[in-house]
């Protein structure tokens, strides 16, 4: 492993930029993600920064059972994120549709149908610690030695 790669690994492990997108959730998971930003859970002490701009994000947090209006927009947001990137499904909705997954409901879950989902955080809503643990455990597998893996 080159020195440059080591440096990149070190920097990337403390600089994970997160963008979150709500594709039709009940806002419960959004509030849990917001709780991650608040002083009690303080996501920035782990080097995770929330920008809400896909162009500078590394990780996309998807919340909500994908509504038809979001299907093409979710893919567009995913394609805007530069490599290396990963998407995490937050909550039950992007995994299964949760309580909205009933007949005649206007949703199209799972989110994995539309974009590649790297990790899932089940729960309705999940605890902020679970969201934090998911981001922190996923980040090294995606970002470590990215240039070497790409080759």
């Amino acid at each position: 492993m080159s020195l440059l790669q080591k440096l990149k690994n070190r920097v990337r492990s403390k600089s994970i930029h997160v963008c979150f997108v709500d594709v039709g959730s009940c806002n419960g998971c959004d509030i849990e993600v917001l709780a991650c930003l608040a002083p009690r859970y303080d996501i920035e002490q782990y080097g995770i920064y929330v920008h809400n701009n896909p162009r500078e994000a590394d990780i996309l947090l998807v919340m909500g059972a994908v509504t038809p209006q979001w299907v093409d927009k979710l893919v567009a947001i995913w394609e805007k994120i530069p490599e290396p990137k990963a998407a995490i499904a937050i909550g039950n909705c992007p995994i299964s549709g949760c309580v909205y997954n009933r007949r005649d409901s206007y949703i199209d879950p799972p989110a994995a149908k539309h974009i590649p989902i790297a990790a899932q955080v089940p729960g309705c809503p999940p605890r902020p610690t679970e969201i934090l643990a998911a981001i922190l455990s996923l980040a090294p597998t995606i970002f470590e030695n990215y240039e070497e893996k790409k080759r």
């Binding site: 039950n92 299964s96 899932q120 089940p122 729960g123 309705c124």
Partner: peptide, 8 residues
């Protein structure tokens, strides 16, 4: 219990 569906 199926975790992706259960709302606890």
């Amino acid at each position: 219990i199926y975790p992706g569906h259960c709302i606890r």
